[in-house]
């Protein structure tokens, strides 16, 4: 498999790269040097393997963080209304 094509798939599926960074990187893949493709590809392959090996830990971490931050609820008078309210 062509390494740049493989890198594209790994960038798309990465957990650790924010989407805006993904988009920027995808726009640059064609111009990346072989060395950078190898470094980034190796990291993202390792990231994927880590997620597979630590799936439960990742899920638990997300659940714990969501719990810790507590989901913000709308304040009174700050409700978001959808539609007209009529059937």
């Amino acid at each position: 498999m062509d390494k740049k094509v493989a890198l594209v798939t790994l960038i798309e599926n990465s957990f650790v790269l924010p989407n805006e960074v993904k988009l920027e990187l995808l726009g640059r893949v064609e111009g990346l040097s072989d060395t950078d493709v190898e470094k980034l590809g190796t990291f993202l392959a390792a990231e994927r393997q880590f997620v597979l090996d630590h799936e439960k830990g990742v899920r638990d971490s997300v659940a714990e963080i969501l719990q810790m931050l507590d989901t913000p609820k709308p304040e009174p008078g700050d409700a978001v209304y959808v539609g007209t309210g009529r059937p």
Binding site: M1, A6, V8, L10, N13, G41, T42, L44, A45, A46
Partner: peptide, 10 residues
């Protein structure tokens, strides 16, 4: 994703 990761041996 598995095939792509295999292109970069760890």
């Amino acid at each position: 994703a598995a095939r792509s990761a295999a292109a970069f041996p760890l």
